[in-house]
Nucleic acid binder design. Sequence first.
DNA 1: GCATATTTGTCCGTATGTATA
DNA 2: CTATACATACGGACAAATATG
Lengths: 213, 213
Amino acid sequence: MTESATTLADTLREQIIAGGFAPGTRLSEAALAARLGVSRNTLREAFRVLAQHRLVEHVPNRGVSVVSPTTADVVDIYRARRLIECGVLRSASPLHPAVAAMRLALERAEAAVEADDWAAVGTANMGFHRALIALSDSPRLERAHGQLAAELRLAFLAIDDPESLHRPFVLRNRAVLDALTGEGPDAAADALERYLVDSERLVLGAYSRMGRS
Amino acid sequence: MTESATTLADTLREQIIAGGFAPGTRLSEAALAARLGVSRNTLREAFRVLAQHRLVEHVPNRGVSVVSPTTADVVDIYRARRLIECGVLRSASPLHPAVAAMRLALERAEAAVEADDWAAVGTANMGFHRALIALSDSPRLERAHGQLAAELRLAFLAIDDPESLHRPFVLRNRAVLDALTGEGPDAAADALERYLVDSERLVLGAYSRMGRS
DNA sequence: GCATATTTGTCCGTATGTATA
DNA sequence: CTATACATACGGACAAATATG
């Protein structure tokens, strides 16, 4: 039972990203510790990790709750994504092994579209962009991007209309990959930039229709 | 005395970055907790935060120690810095208020050179690059860059030759700023790219002379 | 506005497993 | 191989802050 705090943080992260706790939910220490069979102290250590990952918010004397990204958060997340993802792509080699991982994720997404499984489309799309970052061979960039992706996932959960969020972008990912192998990194980066601008617009539109702050 | 874990993490971070604990030092939780006047549980929560910031390393059943970046870490840190800093600069406006902060940091560095205060030169140089990232108006990019800077600081501490590390780059920062206000963002980004390549080479050279892994 | 109940923040004592001398 | 030291995790306790009636 060593290192249970880290393991606990991992399982909690998966649960949150999978939608097990709705954005905004307060997570009571005593209740969760009892439900998970761990002590409050161990749970609090896990909370610190998740708070650093920006998955939960820690308000002094009022405990932690699952974050619910604001429009300002969404704007910032996409700004950072554009800079990192397009930057990686622009200086990437079309011969990099990660290109195969991108293709695999894309095929998974296309299969999930056929099966009308929009949640699977969302995770496959995320996998495409994770593979894209792997083109950089930089663990730190992958870590930074992973945090952005996790936060964005919470925004998607708050919207809760996976088809309109994910379906249009399978084709766009295909275009990015084709541009990378066909026309080269710069064309691919331009396509990705347009992709991210449109995706941000979609999310913000859904937010404004929900009357979110 | 609420929220002492976060405060504790902040003070520990400052102590580590200031060189209060040499890279590689093992931090015994019992001893440190006694010295700082906090309980082990509180200290452990602070450790989790610092581990996420990559300032300390958490080895299961062997406690935490101050990290000592390897050559691979240094290469990765500079790769990430080039992508983020140059990307920010390339799409920055020379009229952004952060330019004034860059100028201020630069003047502080130049004054510290006159005073032969190399530690101050180092912090002022860091401040220049922090202000540079502020050009992006992105809290998340600032956070990501701050983590890279803190890690790099540990590498500088391990080398412990602040004059040769920091002195040459005051002039280079001046060149970056002048290029930004004079020739525009693209020229500034090119100058910054050359800066970072040379800085990485200097650090790696010092590492190889130390016989580091 | 006040009193009560709940929850968090912190600390202590202790048991267990792991690594090291 | 034994013994020691230490990290890890648990449970209980209490003060402080917050929320609720």
